[in-house]
């Protein structure tokens, strides 16, 4: 059997290392600048908007709620629910705390912020 030289092995090793580094970089950079907001009604995704591409503000009108979409941020501008908690929450720009209108079953959330899987808070 022909032996592979040490040099060849070293080249294979280096090539693999570089290839994997490139792969990690590519995989990591895809959609990095995207700020995807999702709007759910009764648990169903009804609308998706990339906030990073919004240049002019506009509203999305749902039967009981109005959502204000602005460059880089999103908020519930009005709702016909009694508690108005969702309106009082103001704008969100990141993924940790979604805006939730419980009475009308509307949720606005931004795709998960890196590193946090869930939130425990006094909602319950």
């Amino acid at each position: 059997m022909r032996r592979i030289s040490n040099k060849a092995l070293l080249i294979i090793f280096a090539a693999l290392l570089i290839a994997s580094a490139v792969w990690i970089l590519i995989a990591g950079s895809i959609k990095q600048d995207e700020l995807l907001a999702e709007i759910y009604v009764e648990g169903r995704l009804v609308h998706t908007v990339d906030l990073s591409e919004v240049t002019e503000s506009y509203t999305i009108n749902l039967p009981h709620n109005t959502i204000l979409v602005e460059p880089g941020q999103i908020s519930m501008s009005s709702a016909d629910c009694p508690d108005q908690l969702c309106v009082r929450q103001g704008v969100i720009k990141s993924g940790i705390y979604p805006i939730i209108c419980l009475p009308n079953k509307v949720e606005v959330r931004i795709a998960r912020e890196s590193g946090i899987d869930a939130v425990t808070g006094g909602r319950s």
């Binding site: 103001g90 969100i92 705390y97 946090i116 899987d117 869930a118 939130v119 425990t120 909602r123 319950s124």
Partner: peptide, 27 residues
């Protein structure tokens, strides 16, 4: 609704990261 429960770890083997909401500044 704020009750979080995790089974096992994340698929990559690391632990789940659960943020604790600030009671004064809820954001």
């Amino acid at each position: 609704g704020g009750n979080v429960q995790v089974v096992g770890s994340k698929p990559d083997g690391s632990k789940w990261r659960i943020a604790l909401q600030d009671p004064v500044n809820a954001g």
